[in-house]
Amino acid sequence: MIRSLLLLFSVCLFLCVPSCDYIEDPDGNNQPPPVPCSDTPNFTPRIDPIRKVLLEDYTGHRCGNCPNAGTILKDLISANPDQIVGLAIHAQNAGYFTAPKNDGDKFRHDFRNEVSNTLDAEFQIAATGLPKGMVNRKAFNGTKALPPSTWNQAVNTELALEVLADIQLAAEWNETDRSLCVFAFVESRTALPANLKLAVYLAEHKFVNWQADYSVPGEEIENYEHNHILRTAIGPIWGRQVLANNSTNGSNEIQVFSANLSGQSWDISNCSLVAVLYDDQNMEVIQAEEVQVIP
C-alpha cells in the first residue's frame, strides 16, 4: 500500500509541479529603450475647429467584396475633405479573409497585427462578416458593424453634430534610429465627460500588394494600392486618459507618445498618424485627427 501511494505521489509530483509559470510583471523586461523626444512644441488653439469622423473599415486582402468598401471610403473622403479619418483594420478573427498564404507568390503579406486584433476583439466586427465598418464606434440602428452601403448615412449623421473637442498633432521622426515622437494637443470645446482617452495609431498608405476583387476578371489584383492600413499604436492601444481633471470649454492638455519602429519595414513617407479621442465608458469617438508623419 505504501509503495502504491508513493508511486501515486511521485507521478503527481512529476507531472504537476514544474508546470506553472506565474507572471508577476506581464509587461516583461524585454522592452526597447525609451525614445527620447525633444521639447514639446507650442500649439495654438484653433478658432474654428471642424468635426472629424473616424471610419474604421474592417477589411481583408482575400476578401473579394472589400475593394468596393475601400472605394466607398475613398469617395466619402473626397466628398468631405479633411473630415473623414479612415483606418483599414485587418483582424485575425476574419479568418480566411485576412490570413496570409503560406505557399505560392500571392497574398503572402500579413496585414494582421496585435492592435487590429485587439480592437476587433473589443467590438467583434470581423465575426459579422466582411466588409463591415464602424463610424465613430457608435451603434446605428442597433449595431456598430455597418455594411458599406450605410456608411454614408452614418457619416452624415455624425458630421452634423457639433464639435466637442479639437485635436492637433505634431510628429518628430528620426530616420537614423527610426524613432517617432508624437505630440498631441487636445482641447475641449464644451464640458466633456471625465472618462476621455486619446489613442494614437500609425496607418500606412500606398502599399502595393495582392488583393482579391470579385469585380475584375480573374478576381485578383496583383498591384492593388492598400491605404489606411492600421500598422500599430503609438503608445497604449487604448490610449491614455486626457482632460481628467478639467473638461470645461477651452481646457486643454498635451500628451507625448513615442515608439521605436526600427524592427518594421513600413515606408514612413507614406504613413500617417491617426488620433482618436473617445469616451472610455461607451467607447464612442468624439473627435479624430490625421496628419502625415513626414509632412
Binding site: P18, C20, D21, P26, D27, Q31, N113, E114, T118, G235
Partner: peptide, 18 residues
Amino acid sequence: IPNPDDPNKILDIPLNVG
C-alpha cells in the same frame, strides 16, 4: 506578443500554463 497597452513592449508570456 506586443503589449496591447503599449505595443512597443513585449509581453512576458507564461510558457507553462497550469
